[in-house]
Amino acid sequence: MKLFVFEQEQFVPGRPADIWNFFADPANLKIITPPYMGFDIASDAGQRTFAGQIISYTVRPLLGIPLSWITEITHVEEGLSFIDEQRFGPYRFWHHRHLFAKAKGGVLMTDTVHYGLPLPLFENTINELIVRPKLEQIFAFRRKKIEELF
């Protein structure tokens, strides 16, 4: 299986504790996800991210077709980082590290996503034509929304 990597950095102005608290609340994922994705949290995720947390979502990334996606928060370093990993869903592999580094006037937030795709014979083509552009689109929306919020 080939692993692809998507990475994005964004400076977020504000108090680091406020920024962390926003991103550590799973309910806020809906706010920073494009509406066309039809993102809904299907489980009671609670109000604070913690290691071992299981979160179940419904997403509609292509043609409005609903997909179930279940992730586990595998690591949390309070105020610094957390990792979510797919347990069931559209990817063969999904590992998303959210890193929050204090910077003058705010936080430098870095998202690093390692992902593997189904259909190994066509994974490069699927990534180039569908998955990578979709991730770029989702994270561009997220970037803009975060700029509006902070």
Rank of each mutant, 00 (worst) to 15 (best):
V107A: 02
A42C: 10
V12F: 00
Q47T: 12
Q53S: 06
L117G: 09
H95F: 04
D111H: 10
P16S: 07
L3N: 08
K145F: 03
P133I: 04
S68H: 10
E128A: 14
T112E: 04
F100N: 01
G38Q: 12
Q137N: 13
A51I: 13
I138S: 05
V59E: 06
N124K: 15
I41T: 14
T33V: 14
G89Y: 01
L121S: 10
A42V: 15
Y115H: 06
F88R: 09
I19L: 02
R132M: 10
E72T: 01
P118K: 04
I70F: 03
D18Y: 00
G89P: 07
H95A: 02
A27G: 06
D111L: 12
W20I: 08
R132W: 02
E78W: 02
E85T: 07
R60E: 01
T49C: 15
Q53N: 05
L121K: 11
G105P: 05
M1R: 03
R87W: 00
R143F: 11
R143L: 06
P118I: 06
P13H: 05
L135V: 08
F23Y: 11
A17C: 10
A45Y: 04
M37C: 11
Y36D: 15
P61L: 12
R142C: 08
D18L: 05
A27F: 02
P66M: 11
I73Y: 07
E123F: 09
M37G: 06
E136G: 12
A17N: 12
M37A: 05
E147C: 09
A42I: 13
F82R: 09
E148P: 07
F141P: 14
P133H: 02
Y36Q: 14
I73L: 15
S68Q: 15
P16E: 08
F139L: 01
G89C: 05
K134F: 09
G79Q: 02
F150C: 01
L67A: 15
Q137G: 07
V12S: 01
F93S: 03
T49Y: 06
S81R: 06
N127R: 06
S56Y: 04
G46L: 03
P61Q: 12
F150H: 00
L63W: 08
P26T: 13
P118A: 12
L129Q: 01
I19D: 02
A103I: 06
V107W: 03
K134Y: 10
G14P: 04
L29G: 15
L119P: 01
A51H: 13
I146R: 00
M1G: 12
Q53M: 05
E85L: 00
I73T: 14
W20T: 02
Q86G: 08
S56N: 14
L63N: 07
E128L: 10
